[in-house]
Computed example of a mutant assay.
Amino acid sequence: MNQPKGKGEPGAIPAMPPDSGRENEPGWAGGLRKLYNSVVDEPLPDSFKDLLKKLDGGGDA
């Protein structure tokens, strides 16, 4: 499976850039950016972590 490329943790999705320098963006863009960042910052549920371990071969089958 292909992993996103960029800085930070392998497979991590980079956060969207900060609001500065965005004078030409539509009014809804700031709200969408805040929503995106809040979802990215949510902790991963334990059930997802367990599933990822199993898919990686690191968990008990």
Rank of each mutant, 00 (worst) to 15 (best):
K54G: 06
A12P: 04
G30E: 10
D60M: 09
R33V: 02
E23I: 14
S20H: 06
N24V: 15
G27T: 10
I13G: 00
A12H: 07
A61H: 06
G58R: 13
P10L: 02
V39P: 05
E25H: 14
G58D: 07
S38P: 07
D46Y: 04
G30S: 14
K7V: 15
K5H: 03
L32Y: 10
M16V: 14
D41L: 04
S47P: 09
P17Y: 12
L52T: 02
K34S: 05
D56L: 08
G58L: 06
G8E: 05
K49A: 04
S47W: 08
V40S: 00
P18T: 07
D41G: 07
D41W: 07
I13T: 05
D41R: 13
W28N: 11
N37S: 07
S38A: 02
L51Q: 07
A12W: 07
D50N: 01
W28H: 13
V40E: 07
S38M: 03
S47D: 09
N37R: 12
N2H: 15
K7T: 15
A15F: 14
A61Y: 03
E23L: 15
S47G: 09
R22M: 13
L51D: 03
P17A: 04
E9Y: 09
A15M: 14
S20I: 15
P14F: 04
Q3D: 09
M1D: 09
G59C: 00
S38Y: 00
N37D: 03
G8Y: 02
P26S: 06
N24H: 13
G6V: 03
V40P: 01
L32G: 13
K54M: 05
G8I: 07
K7N: 04
K7C: 05
V40A: 03
D41I: 09
L35R: 15
G6N: 04
A29D: 12
P26N: 04
K53Q: 05
S38W: 03
K54R: 06
L51T: 08
E42P: 09
D60Y: 10
G30M: 12
M16P: 02
D60S: 10
D19T: 15
G11W: 00
D56E: 08
D46R: 01
V40D: 00
L52S: 03
E25D: 10
D60V: 13
R33E: 01
A15V: 14
V40L: 06
K53W: 00
P10C: 05
Q3Y: 11
